[in-house]
Amino acid sequence: MSAKSKLISLAEMVAQIPDGASIGLGGSFLHRGPFAFCRELIRQDKRDLEIIKASPGYDIDILCRAGAVRRVRAGIVAMEGNFGLAGAYRKAVESGRVELEEHACMTLVAGLRAGSAGVPFQPVGGVHGSQIAKINGWKKMADPYGSNEETYLIPAIRPDFAVIHAHEIDAAGNARVYGSPHWDRVMTRAAKTLFVTGEKLVETDRFREQPELTLVPGFMVKAACEVRQGAWPGSLEPEYPVNYAEVQDYVDEPGAGIERHMSRAPEAQG
């Protein structure tokens, strides 16, 4: 007996995201990000989004360029791969159009760990001597079990949605990732509603053969969608590397526009 299908179209998936939602995104910098999903947010003219990701780059930049973002919670933001700063994100924060909650990557993850465990906060190592703690009003606590060592406590983060791009999905929403999961495991556990996009739709039997490769079990997933080239212009190794020419073309688009880039995206081709 097969589980009920969770497959919907990318447009239908994005249509479920209201303006003002907080969205945790998978991947890291130019690698295995749900970038087709981000472009669909732009096509549907979403506004006032809060984007949560330890190391965003192309995704936050294009969403800022499109005016879709109100708030960002991130640890490090750059286009990477020799492209330097994320220009549209940078301008959005400098102008005050976008509010930043600055993290160290692991403090964001501590918040997500708290969210995924259903507790109000999570201790995190380090942070001592960083003014990020003060900016965010983070509190520290002496070890109540005797050592008195002080540890910072990061408040729980529970994104309204999380979206990751996986190598393989099935109709039940199971998602398999090859290589590094980056931060996707904790992100998928912390979110209230989870969507997965997958490069390839496969039969559930393939998941049953090696369940240890399943990053996300289908029961956690609200909806899934097959999206070929879903991480374009970033990489999905070993399927495709970063398309540096297209990232450069995006960076160089005149007037900080995105029309040319959006029209070149794989999901926009007939």
């Binding site: 190391s55 991130a74 640890g75 490090i76 933001v77 750059a78 700063l85 994320a86 994100y89 940078r90 924060v93 400098e94 930043l100 600055e102 993290h103 160290a104 990557c105 692991m106 403090t107 995190v124 190592g125 380090g126 942070v127 960083s130 990020i132 703690a133």
Partner: peptide, 11 residues
């Protein structure tokens, strides 16, 4: 200038 952020460094 908004810089990239500290990434791992604070931790």
């Amino acid at each position: 200038v908004r810089l990239p952020g500290g990434g791992g460094s604070a931790v």
